[in-house]
Design a protein around this nucleic acid. Structure first.
Lengths: 201, 201
DNA sequence: CTCCTGATGTCAGATACTGACATGGAGGTA
DNA sequence: TACCTCCATGTCAGTATCTGACATCAGGAG
């Protein structure tokens, strides 16, 4: 009982339906929203995607990981953003700008729905939140590395990366929560400004 | 085969050996160091503590949690520290001072050994690190609440708490890693200073 | 003495995850 | 065509984590 009833003709008939990973991700999100995260088993997800449990675990290290396919790409965008920041930019500004740019992709309608649903899941289940936090830690480590390539020395790079992630977390949260009074970039800039004034006090 | 061979006389004979929780924590740390985290099962831990697997899960929500008994106390100390900070202190200074004071307790010899061993475990296993991160997030939330009680308004409180945790993370890491060139408090102050200068740049 | 409380044990089960091996179209090569 | 290798997926058995339900039984309260 495949959900994505795809039609084939004999010639293009592949051995398996394409995009197993994508199907698993889609099935997972749908079931998580319908039945909740705990109530849906990996077997449920695999079945809905027309696959077996074993195959799920070939694509994802564990049940939570199916919700984090975008994290690798985000990390890459952040690193690129830091590396391509203007020469004179301070470490903190470089990181914040990178987050601001990377986050802009989330603002179209189709993504927005997914982002909100995903955010609700993360907030609801500590299990998932843990994974989110370690992804952010990985992001912070990558940002640190990118800053060091720019010549920022060790304690400052680490601090700037951590501070940047904090700004991102708060900016993102407020953007998702509030009724689109401001754009994502504005929230990031507001949080960054608040941090700067606070640290100078 | 109880490890802590306690002697009883008939009069003080209690139905069970005391401090089941403590015995479980001790057994867990010992086994984690000997066999590694993954190689030791909850059943192993319980057996070494003279208890059953089921009892382990009555004291700890899951296998990782046995390593985090101190987190609740730490959180309390941080909150107390923030609440008892001098009236004029800036939010960030209040948080940093609270961490500095709370961390001082780790500096005696007996704790130090445990702290280092535990740190090695956290660094080695992503599974445990995830738990560590969510504890720090909880700490950050508690600190935010404490700051708001001091009249700090919402965006600043959150930011100060997050920044404070970042300072703590980095200060702690350097203190644990480096060969006691500086005291814990000095590491915290150094990280705090670095953050301030960085945010002002 | 009796009853109740509470820490622990026992047992069965669900679910997450892993290793080993089997299967069978696709696509290449002779 | 015949054959062969590749590799995504399936099958199966097993282990470890975690949970619910119920049993046990010393100690304390009355």
């Amino acid at each position: 009982m495949s959900v994505t009833a795809i039609m084939y003709d004999a010639k293009s008939m592949a051995r398996w339906e394409p995009d197993a990973r994508g199907r698993l991700e889609k099935a997972a999100m749908e079931l998580f929203q319908q039945r909740g995260y705990v109530a849906t088993t990996v077997e449920d997800i695999a079945a809905r995607a027309g696959l077996t449990e074993r195959t799920f675990f070939r694509y994802f290290a564990d049940k939570r990981e199916v919700l984090f396919s975008g994290s690798k790409e985000l990390e890459k965008n952040i690193v690129d953003g830091i590396e391509s920041a203007p020469k004179g930019a301070s470490p903190l500004d470089a990181v914040a700008a990178a987050f601001e740019a990377a986050g802009a992709e989330l603002e179209d309608r189709r993504e927005l729905h997914f982002v909100r649903a995903r955010y609700a899941l993360v907030m609801k289940h500590a299990e998932i939140q843990e994974r989110e936090l370690i992804k952010l830690a990985s992001l912070s480590a990558a940002a640190t590395k990118a800053l060091r390539k720019r010549g920022v020395s060790e304690p400052a790079a680490r601090l700037a990366a951590e501070a940047g992630v904090a700004v991102f977390k708060i900016g993102f949260e407020r953007w998702v929560t509030e009724r689109k009074s401001k754009t994502f970039a504005q929230h990031i800039r507001a949080a960054l400004h608040a941090l700067k004034t606070m640290a100078s006090a």
